[in-house]
Simulated scan of single mutants.
Amino acid sequence: MLETPPVWFILLAFLAALGPLVFIHEYGHYIVGRWFGVGAETFSIGFGKEIAGWTDKRGTRWKVGWLPLGGYVKFAGDMDPASMGKDLDKLSLEERARSFHAKPVWQRALVVAAGPIANFLLAILIFAAFIAVYGAPRTPAVVAAVLPGSPAAAAGLRPGDEIIAANGTAIAGFDTLSDYARLRPGEAIRLTFVRDGQTREASTRLATVIEGDRFGGKFRVGRLGIGSGKLVYEKVGPLELLPEAVRVTGRVLDSTATGLWQILTGRRPLTELGGPIKMAQVAGQVASIGMFEFVQMLAFFSINLGFINLLPVPMLDGGHLALYAVEAARRRPLGAQAQEWLFRGGLAALLTLMLVATFNDLGSIGLWQTLGRLLG
């Protein structure tokens, strides 16, 4: 278990991690907005009172706020914190030309989507650099152990066998095999595997395991009953670096989405939901190991930041994109009152999420146990 570094080191690591990620995210919005001729009034890293800043020749105020928990770009035409366009008819022709909300809906959508995309691109570049140096991560579908009485034992599988197909579907690695089995509880399966250089086949029926969630719900998952082999790193050619990095990013994104869905559906406890304090704690611990691990952690944080911002919740980028989709379908935006209520609901949802995450974070550092001892 990693030791907790000093508080000053945790704060420094947190700022070193969050600052660049927020900058990359907001710069994605900013640069695409510039391409479409949108004026930017403010580019802020952090919220609250400005502690440092300057104004460039385009009139954009670049600043750092005292609360380093995010950032924003205030485009010309943003009339309120929810980035809602109002009273566009009162703008002059020159102001309308620079106004974000006067742009076509597809341009606004690209500007909004550019933030999360920038986070994903950063992760891809980091992973590509690591793959170039160390190779692509692989967990071959090689049997490391066979559970007695399992479907794998019934099929006659042995340690060292490499499974290459299931019911004719190619198996790229252990994760692919695990996902394939998990979705098919109780189903018959024909395995193609390699043993001592020879390709063989065997049939069995997957086991059914009943798992539950915190709401009392039950669901069935399939099990083959084998243990995975070791993670290996395989050298790839220069033309394969970006595709491999994209695949790694996709797997992390899929894992993030699955984890959140399992929390929302009760299959994982709410205590696994973390916030800024937990993020700072992880950043400090990983930074104490070394720069290699810290940069790798940045890629995971960047993916999570991009994913969270794409959730279809008003106040987030995904909420704006959902409204633009409605606008494109209706050929006119929702009414101002409807948008305002949606943004209020989104703000309430985000505040609730932050409260739960902060409660969990404070628990993870032992605050509730300490209070219990003091009051007990």
Rank of each mutant, 00 (worst) to 15 (best):
K49M: 14
G19L: 00
S44F: 07
W35F: 13
L18D: 01
V22D: 03
P20K: 04
W35I: 11
G46A: 03
Y27D: 02
H29S: 08
G48L: 06
V32N: 07
L18K: 02
Y27E: 02
E41T: 14
W54T: 08
F47I: 11
A17G: 12
H29M: 09
R34W: 05
F43Y: 08
G37L: 10
K49Q: 15
Y27Q: 06
Y27L: 14
W54G: 03
E50H: 12
G37W: 11
F23V: 10
V22N: 03
G39A: 12
A52F: 11
H25A: 03
I45W: 09
S44K: 11
T55R: 14
L18M: 13
V38M: 14
H29K: 10
A40H: 08
K49H: 15
A17K: 03
V22T: 06
I31D: 04
I45Y: 06
D56A: 15
G37V: 09
W35Q: 12
G19D: 00
V38C: 15
I24D: 00
G53L: 10
H29A: 09
W54H: 05
I24W: 00
L21R: 02
I45C: 10
F36P: 01
F43E: 01
G28I: 00
I24G: 00
F43Q: 02
P20V: 01
R34I: 10
V22H: 05
P20Y: 00
G46R: 08
T55I: 13
E41W: 14
G37A: 09
G19C: 04
I51D: 03
Y27P: 07
A17H: 13
W35G: 13
W35M: 15
G48H: 15
E26W: 03
G33W: 00
W54A: 02
A40Y: 04
W35A: 14
A17Y: 07
A16D: 03
F47M: 07
E41S: 14
T55E: 14
D56I: 12
L18F: 04
W54Y: 09
F47P: 11
Y30N: 02
